[in-house]
């Protein structure tokens, strides 16, 4: 991938392919939340998250199996071992579901939960970038990165509150 050759040359402009991938992944998140929300309404939020993680494990395992059979030469080995804690992302993912279920059912409702979640997400991400936390590259956000983030956040809050008031 051409994008990986320029990584350590300081701040660079995101490749259009990367922006497109991020927007498409965000759209997948909408579909995922729709599906999980349907299961949560039909059963319980915890069961919905449990099935999502179970189905996800099986699908990811099958995809990995297909990759390994089709392209055995690409099996990694020499690129260094990941520290044990890097395997624990799933714990905080699972906790997110439980915590946000509690908050949604409080007086904050869906609107407040989404707005606060957005705030927490962005603030911690900026801190992680500034310090190069947890083994990822340190990068100070450029002025345009901050302006882009601010614009996306304000736009998102407008949409969230428009929906909250109507509901």
């Amino acid at each position: 991938m051409a994008a990986s050759t320029t990584i350590s040359e300081g701040p660079r402009r995101p490749h259009p392919l990367e922006i497109c991938a991020a927007l498409c992944a965000g759209a997948l998140l909408t579909l995922m939340l729709l599906s999980n929300g349907m299961m949560a309404a039909h059963t319980t939020p915890i069961f919905a998250s449990l099935t999502a993680h179970g189905v996800g494990s099986v699908v990811a395992a099958l995809l990995l199996l297909v990759f390994w059979i089709r392209w055995p030469a690409r099996r990694r080995g020499a690129s260094g071992r990941a520290p044990i804690w890097a395997y624990l992302g799933g714990i905080s993912g699972a906790l997110t579901v439980i915590i946000s279920t509690v908050v949604v059912n409080s007086s904050l409702a869906l609107t407040g939960t989404m707005a606060l979640g957005l705030a927490g997400q962005v603030v911690l991400a900026l801190l992680f970038d500034c310090f190069g936390a947890l083994g990822l590259e340190r990068r100070l956000p450029r002025r345009n990165d901050l302006l882009a983030l601010a614009s996306i956040i304000v736009g998102t809050l407008l949409i969230i509150f428009a929906r909250g008031n109507a509901g």
Binding site: I19, L23, G26, T30, L118, L136, P141, A148, I153
Partner: peptide
């Protein structure tokens, strides 16, 4: 980076 990844995912 974490911030731009998060922002663009939210945008999408």
């Amino acid at each position: 980076g974490a911030a731009l990844t998060g922002g663009l995912l939210v945008a999408g």
